[in-house]
Design a protein around this nucleic acid. Structure first.
Lengths: 217, 217
DNA sequence: ACATTAATTTAGGTAAGCCTAAATTAATCA
DNA sequence: TGATTAATTTAGGCTTACCTAAATTAATGT
């Protein structure tokens, strides 16, 4: 029904580059939920326009030009997510789809207004960095919770937003961005965690811990 | 490049019904800036779906079903305009295009959040009524400034938003929604006006006065 | 009333972005 | 190495919302 925009392709391919060693037609098709043949079409088009580098049967790379375009849309997406949470009081597990739609129609002026109202934030509600207007990303240092030793006090600085169900669960136990907690116990059997949030003990499975990123305090 | 959605057709036709005695193919084409033949296509499609009633070579009418759909999108449009002005500090002459884009992708949830944050407003920044969720419009009584006698004190309750240039000009002279002013003089020569806004005398041409709607206070 | 003019519709075509099925290429492993 | 398998591309098609040009219908003025 509704088709995928050029920037949307670039954004997704750019994001895939971070998690896949080789970005292939099938991987893109899978993420965008369209047929591989359709991806080939679009990849050819975007390559001819200089957004991608494509070696047939091999894979795809985002060019500098493509990267600029991707970062622009990522900035809009994350600013809008921030806005949804801070101003419209959405909960952080329900914002991704909304932001997906809006990012494509957000004008420069709008982007600027939102940035102002929010006071020029540098991370979105999941702790992902918001690229600057010039496309610069300030990376912060952190570790997945799985790397943390028993007894350590940590602060949550990022949560993987790929699975809303995770966000929903951890909200319920009082775990948000900036939350401080103590790692009480690492259970050897399956690498799950007992942490203390506020005065309460809470459980986190290994899969959860892998998606929660923290700094030691 | 970007095509016009079903709701957009309905919204525009619905709005044209208020200002034209007969809504014809050419009038629609003109407003939407597409070829008349394209309008015929779409009108046939919307008629077959029960949104419009179409008598070939004659004209078009919005059905009850079409009206419901139009009012839904108008509600979104006006809520969003209000939001742009109240929360994002846009000026009222620069919001229409922004709202145009957003109205189509605004989810129910989003509509509700915005309505809440704004405190359930009943008019948009130009004084146009915001249809309720059920599609009910509260009409208020007013006259165009052209109907007002010399010496009367009036309050602005609506301004025709069809021409951003008008909005821009009258903002400059301090005329906004809810502004109170005194009609000092009606110039017989060309029906233009001298009004007092605050302590200053300001000029309004007849064309301007026709687009400014007021209540006597 | 009828010829002219203007509005509208019909017919046929285009571009985009998707699809499926078939053909091609690359990777794997016996 | 060569055959099998999996990934990718090519070929051909569909739909949608637009277009232009031609045909049709309605409205207008003498």
């Amino acid at each position: 029904m509704s088709s995928i925009s050029v920037e949307n392709y670039l954004k997704n391919i750019y994001e895939l580059e971070a998690s896949e060693k080789k970005v292939t037609t099938n991987i893109i098709a899978d993420k965008l939920k369209i047929a591989p043949a359709s991806v080939t079409d679009m990849v050819k088009k975007l390559s001819s326009k200089g957004f991608l580098r494509h070696v047939p049967y091999k894979g795809v790379e985002v060019t500098e030009k493509g990267k600029r375009s991707a970062l622009k849309i990522i900035r809009k997406h994350r600013l809008w997510e921030m806005f949804l949470v801070e101003v419209l009081h959405f909960s952080w597990d329900k914002i991704d789809d909304e932001a997906e739609a809006f990012e494509h129609i957000m004008s420069e002026r709008m982007e600027q207004k939102i940035d102002e109202v929010l006071g020029h934030p540098v991370v979105d509600p999941h702790g992902d960095p918001i690229p600057s207007k010039k496309g610069i990303i300030r990376h912060i240092e952190y570790d997945p919770l799985t790397k943390v030793e028993e007894g350590t006090v940590v602060q949550v600085v990022r949560v993987n937003d790929a699975h809303p169900e995770l966000l929903e669960y951890i909200s319920k136990i009082g775990l948000f961005l900036k939350t401080k907690m103590t790692v009480l116990q690492r259970i050897k059997f399956d690498n799950s965690f007992i942490v203390k949030i506020g005065s309460k003990k809470q459980f986190l499975s290994q899969r959860m811990a892998e998606s929660i990123f923290v700094q030691r305090v």
